Each structure stands twice: as C-alpha cells, then as structure tokens.
Amino acid sequence: MKRKIRVIGCPMDLGQTRRGVDMGASAIRYAGLVEELEHLGYEVNDIGDIYVAPRSKDQDGVNEKLKNLPQVHNTCVLLAEAVNQAVQSNSFPLVLGGDHSIAIGTLAGLARHYSNLGVIWFDAHGDLNTAETSPSGNIHGMSLAVSLGYGHPSLTELYGAYPKVKKENIVIIGARSLDEGEKELIFEQGIKVFTMQEIDRMGMPRVMEETIAYLAHTDGIHLSLDLDGLDPSHAPGVGTPVIGGLTYRESHLALEMLAEANIVKSAEFVEVNPILDERNKTAITAVELIQSLMGKSLKPQPVFAEQVNN
C-alpha cells in the first residue's frame, strides 16, 4: 500500500504586489515534482489549482492596509476545504504557492483535524504583522499572525474557530528581516525563533534537534517553507529576497532531519517567482527540498508498516 500525497496548487499573488509568484506552482510542477515523488514510491494525486479571483484594481480606504482582502479570504476558504479533504482521504497535503498568504487557508484546513497543531515556519520573515503594524498592507506578511488569531475577523475566523495554532506550537527558522511590530509580538507572546545569527552560532543540526524536541507535545506538524528563507544565491526567484539566508546544504539537512523524525504531516512551499528566477533554479530547488522532506536519502529505503501488513 503506497503512501499518498495530494498536490494542491494555489497560484495566488494577491497577498503582495510583485507579479509572477502566481506561476510558482506551475514552475514547481514543471521541475518534475510528481515524477520525483512517484520515484520515491508515493501515490501522487495532483488535483490542480485552486481558483483565484482577479486582484482589486482599486483599494478603498478601509482595505488599503489589507490589500485584496475579499479575494484573499475567498481563495483561502477554497484552499482550506481542499486541505481538509486531503486529510480526510488519508493523504499528505502538499500545497504549492503562490505567496505566503495561502498559509491562512492551509492552516485553517488543518485545524479541522489537529487540536494541538505544530508549525515549523522556514522564512526570512516572521509574517507576524497586522494591518496596524504592516508597512505595506500586504497580507502575505500577516499570515502567521492571522493563524494565531491576530488580525481582521474575515481572516482570523476563516473556516472556523480561531486561533488555528497556539503560540507555544510555533518555531520560526531562518528569520533575518523582522519589522518592529513583529519583534514586539514575538517578545510578548514568547514565540520560538531561530534567527540566522543563532543558526550560524548553533549549527543547523542543533537547531533542528531543539525544534523537534520543542514540538514533541503537538499532535501533528505542518511545514510552511518560504523559498526566501534560502539565500538568494541558491533561490534567486523569490518575491522578497534577503541576503544572508540558509545555504542549500543547511536547508536539505533540516528537511532530512524532519524526514528521519517522521513528524511532518503536511507541507507548503511558497513564493517561487519564475519571472525573477534563473532557468527555473528556484523551482528545481523546491522540488529537491520536497524530496528531502519526503525521505529521499542515500541510505536504503525502509520498509513501511503498511507494506508489511499487506
């Protein structure tokens, strides 16, 4: 009996203003995602893309600090339902973005199934802004705050009760660009963050060991990986590149350790922007990282319990 993965594309670029990230899911597929996962022994069901409404041409005074709010809300509801159905079918939900605002929908769908959901947030940014603290009004910088219950009700209450995740169940890895309001929220709520400075000092193996131990009490862990968590030299095609990020090898090591721990129940890979990329380099990197998360290794592959029982 093969392990099942359901691929869900969410080509939304409404959470920010730079165009091109809506083509990220297609770029990742073009880089051979489904074929590589099938080669690892998975049964892959790619259900295609969630419908995304056109962006607003004009912003009213209320929504200028929450750009494209109705469209982001509607898209995230559809994504939440798709993720919910994937979990119901005993499949691993693998969501392809799109900008990081799609995490609002992903986590909302997962919250239907996990009462103590853990989240590992690989990102150069905290995405912990609200309309009051955001310098841009871009919702992709608010997605984690929304999932914690901070923000506009149409987002925090999306697809059911909130918060979708508890503050003690979050680990941010790779942060190196935090706004002042985000720093305050992190300090006030005691959110676990490993900045690039701490990763440089501690080393990725220790960071991941501490992350896995910190989230051991959760009943399921979701990986939300923004490709801008990597240094632009390894992932040039992202919406908001920030120099000084994770190396290619550090990123693979982190995901390999998660695969060995066998604790990740869902994942999303976001912010691939083919317009800014170099020969699809970032999408190819995304596929390679997904393979590491899903167990690709030089070691002999283990025999899974489902196969033994059948």
Results as ranks from 00 to 15, higher is better:
residue 58 D to W: 02
residue 86 A to C: 15
residue 135 P to A: 00
residue 93 P to T: 05
residue 77 V to M: 15
residue 103 A to D: 14
residue 95 V to P: 04
residue 131 A to D: 01
residue 136 S to E: 03
residue 148 L to R: 05
residue 136 S to Y: 02
residue 57 K to E: 10
residue 115 S to P: 06
residue 89 S to I: 09
residue 147 S to H: 08
residue 111 A to L: 05
residue 83 V to D: 12
residue 65 K to D: 06
residue 135 P to R: 03
residue 118 G to K: 06
residue 136 S to L: 07
residue 59 Q to M: 15
residue 78 L to T: 13
residue 126 G to S: 12
residue 112 R to L: 05
residue 80 A to W: 06
residue 71 Q to N: 13
residue 55 R to L: 11
residue 123 D to T: 07
residue 73 H to A: 02
residue 104 I to Q: 10
residue 118 G to C: 13
residue 91 S to T: 13
residue 107 L to G: 07
residue 135 P to S: 02
residue 100 H to M: 08
residue 123 D to R: 03
residue 106 T to Q: 07
residue 59 Q to E: 15
residue 126 G to L: 12
residue 91 S to W: 14
residue 56 S to L: 15
residue 126 G to I: 07
residue 143 S to R: 03
residue 73 H to G: 01
residue 113 H to T: 07
residue 113 H to N: 08
residue 64 E to K: 04
residue 84 N to V: 08
residue 56 S to F: 10
residue 127 D to V: 01
residue 98 G to W: 09
residue 133 T to E: 00
residue 58 D to N: 10
residue 88 Q to T: 07
residue 134 S to K: 00
residue 83 V to K: 10
residue 108 A to V: 08
residue 119 V to E: 01
residue 120 I to L: 05
residue 117 L to A: 06
residue 130 T to I: 12
residue 107 L to I: 14
residue 115 S to N: 11
residue 149 G to R: 09
residue 78 L to H: 13
residue 136 S to G: 02
residue 79 L to N: 10
residue 130 T to N: 03
residue 116 N to T: 03
residue 99 D to H: 12
residue 72 V to M: 10
residue 57 K to W: 07
residue 143 S to V: 06
residue 90 N to K: 14
residue 133 T to Q: 02
residue 64 E to S: 06
residue 116 N to W: 03
residue 73 H to S: 04
residue 104 I to H: 09
residue 113 H to R: 05
residue 148 L to K: 08
residue 138 N to F: 04
residue 122 F to D: 00
residue 114 Y to H: 09
residue 123 D to F: 02
residue 63 N to Y: 09
residue 145 A to D: 14
residue 135 P to E: 00
residue 116 N to E: 04
residue 59 Q to L: 15
residue 98 G to V: 09
residue 148 L to C: 11
residue 133 T to P: 00
residue 107 L to F: 11
residue 131 A to F: 04
residue 95 V to E: 10
residue 114 Y to M: 06
residue 106 T to H: 07
residue 86 A to H: 10
residue 126 G to C: 13
residue 58 D to H: 05
residue 111 A to K: 12
residue 73 H to D: 04
residue 87 V to E: 04
residue 65 K to M: 04
residue 85 Q to S: 15
residue 144 L to A: 11
residue 148 L to Q: 09
residue 136 S to P: 01
residue 150 Y to V: 05
residue 130 T to L: 03
residue 73 H to P: 02
residue 100 H to C: 08
residue 117 L to M: 06
residue 80 A to T: 13
residue 109 G to Q: 10
residue 92 F to R: 09
residue 61 G to A: 13
residue 90 N to V: 14
residue 101 S to H: 05
